[in-house]
Design a protein around this nucleic acid. Structure first.
Lengths: 140, 140
DNA sequence: GCACATTCTGCAATGTAATTGCATTTAAGT
DNA sequence: ACTTAAATGCAATTACATTGCAGAATGTGC
């Protein structure tokens, strides 16, 4: 992607043009995949960790990047219903209420809808997290 | 849930019966919602933080609990495609490869399938993370 | 091109979260 | 009971993330 386009992209999202932002944005464009903070830290050792954090935050705040929940960090835990020691699948949905913060498992009668993937992608399991307003907050 | 049933449940998952595990499991059963580490730490001050961590780990390892990715922590970041400063929605799917670890956004032509929720649940947005083997790992 | 207000950057310090090692205690099988 | 294997608690460590502030850079108006 051309320099001028990157620049315009930052402007469109009401962000100032700085070296760090240009480099990070270009890298995201070029990689065309989701990156972790660590990826950026390794790649851009010339920038301070803090600057990279703030770059990511400003990008997500202004709609240039979105955040995808990862493995580690502040996870929450729910009871499995049909899992054993060997077969540990958890393909049901989770509903997180934006109002009360509660996360529930939505088991039945609703199932995960069939998703169709592009050719040669093979799915082993799926995590669905729905954000919204839960029943009990809605009722009260 | 009865004491004997809790006990059996631990046994079924090849876990030893200990006070901490019994209490934590009972609490999950009673609450019937997903809990964070912090929730447990607040509730069970009689147990060491480390013990609670290890309890959660053993439960997830043995199929008693599943882990739901949360907000904070080790997130990864992907480029938005149609988001502006004001309208920041991100309702597409993510595919995380178990082999190479890469996470890609699956945009088109596949869309998030319609999910139907129980009455009085209102959805604002949805995160879908599919785990499996990606195209390029599959081909090679 | 210059001056000003704004905001970004880097560094240091602080805060928060998670893991490891080890000695002791406890659980389960014989 | 005795023995083996595993769980617990404590302290220390490691890793991850945020805050405050001084100096530097950006963008707007002139």
């Amino acid at each position: 992607m051309k320099y001028s386009e990157l620049k315009q992209s930052l402007k469109n999202h009401k962000l100032r043009i700085t070296d760090c932002r240009m480099d990070v944005l270009e890298y995201f464009q070029k990689q065309n995949k989701a990156l972790s903070f660590k990826d950026l830290e390794d790649k851009f050792q010339e920038y301070d960790r803090v600057t990279l954090y703030r770059t990511l935050h400003s990008f997500t705040d202004n709609g240039l990047l979105h955040k995808i929940p990862g493995d580690g960090g502040s996870a929450i835990y729910g009871l499995c219903h049909d899992c054993g020691v060997e077969n540990h699948h958890h393909n049901h949905m989770h509903f997180k209420c934006n109002n009360c913060g509660t996360t529930e498992c939505i088991d039945s009668p609703i199932n995960i809808p069939k998703v169709s993937l592009p050719d040669n992608y093979e799915m082993s399991d799926i995590d669905v997290i729905i954000n919204g307003i839960c029943k009990s907050c809605h009722d009260n």
